[in-house]
Design a binder for these strands. Structure first.
Lengths: 222, 222
DNA sequence: CTGCTTACTGACTTGAATGTCAATATAGCC
DNA sequence: GGCTATATTGACATTCAAGTCAGTAAGCAG
């Protein structure tokens, strides 16, 4: 008895079928949906009922998996942060020139709503939102160091490699400053690229040209 | 009758004294309070009761002057936008070198929560939030054009001024690209400067050095 | 098949934020 | 002094997101 089709109306609401996922699958579904909504609708897209409806589940299910609304948002930050780091790592795998690497870093930061993610953390002053990023701090630092060295190779691998002690303090700082420049620029462009180019009366595709233009300005070799 | 001191309890709540401001004064008070709260507490500081309490008025008064909560936020954007433009104009008044102007632009964008303002508009996808900025579009463009010319003077006023037609299309674009670079970098630094420098293991005061470093990198003259 | 774990859900409660409204008081004006 | 326009307010009403809870059902193990 209690057949799925429920011949006799068991209640005003038909129970309907349920899809039962593993906990990991469910969380993945929620986070992917939330990321899409953040990108499409901004912060207001991150309410429980909105995400739940779009994911085809009930909002109580999200609370079940993440504990609370804030729990979901924290995990979303962690999720997107890892995504961003993954993109950077992929770019590092390729053995591209510094200029090309610069362009790929731009893409990783400005695309896929990652800049929006960082903008979000900037307007949310709750300290707890820094935690998911701090948790990946070591991972970040390793990646950043590699990026810094790769971007800064220009001017070094022209001369004999043995001449310099692997990296003097001054050079290390210069390398990091360049990474800081690329990161902040990409972030700013990802957040306000469209209105800024419009105000400057620049073509819309300047946003695409910009990374290579910047690479040229600061003398990254191709 | 109905004396202020209310000798006989007229009601469970004592009416209390009221301060009556002009409409302009009241709006100014609300906007200044809201701007301070945005800077200190992020977006969550912009609720009616919070702003009203801190300003020492009732939340109904805010609705009376701005029509709605969203009305207040729109006017706040306009208010802060004008503030930002004012700072830029002040910097333009001084007859500083391009490098110094660059540093002052950084200060105007990164300080006083203006970067946070732009981050906010980036995570709010409501088109209506672009309106207050678009309303000032002409003002913006005039200022930007002046900034572009000032920043781009390097390399031009070395040679004879008459040699070039006031600005070729190519030079105009280059000038605007430089403005775009400075603006996006300042924005990114204002939003994520602290965590980024921390991740890069750079000193905290790098944020202050950065504008002049950038000016040097792209060859702005002092 | 039986039973257990737990993903999942609808219905409810709670609380905060927004907005409405009628009443009140205050500054400026005659 | 008295009058008027309107800034100001407390006390509602309304809406919506967040969270609780008891109950349901889907997969898995035995």
């Amino acid at each position: 008895m209690s057949v799925n089709t429920s011949p006799d109306g068991p209640s005003p609401t038909t129970p309907g079928k349920r899809r039962r996922r593993s906990a990991a699958e469910a969380k993945q579904l929620v986070l992917a949906t939330a990321a899409a909504r953040l990108k499409a609708q901004g912060l207001e897209g991150l309410n429980l009922t909105g995400v739940a409806d779009q994911a085809g589940i009930s909002h109580a299910t999200i609370i079940h998996h993440f504990g609370s609304s804030e729990g979901m948002r924290k995990e979303l930050i962690r999720f997107m942060t890892r995504e961003l780091l993954g993109d950077v790592l992929v770019a590092l795998q390729r053995d591209d020139s510094p200029a090309t690497l610069c362009e790929e870093l731009f893409a990783a930061i400005a695309d896929n709503g990652h800049a929006q993610l960082l903008a979000w953390t900037a307007v949310e002053n709750r300290a707890s939102f820094a935690d998911p990023i701090l948790a990946n701090q070591d991972l970040f630092r390793g990646v950043i160091e590699r990026v810094a060295m790769r971007l800064y190779r220009h001017g070094q691998n022209n001369g004999p490699a043995a001449e310099l002690p692997s990296a003097s303090a001054k050079e290390l700082k210069q390398a990091r400053m360049i990474v800081l420049l690329v990161a902040t620029t990409a972030l700013g462009l990802g957040i306000a690229g469209k209105p800024l180019t419009a105000l400057l009366e620049l073509d819309a595709d300047v946003e695409r040209e910009f990374p290579s233009w910047l690479a040229e300005q600061i003398g990254l070799e191709r």
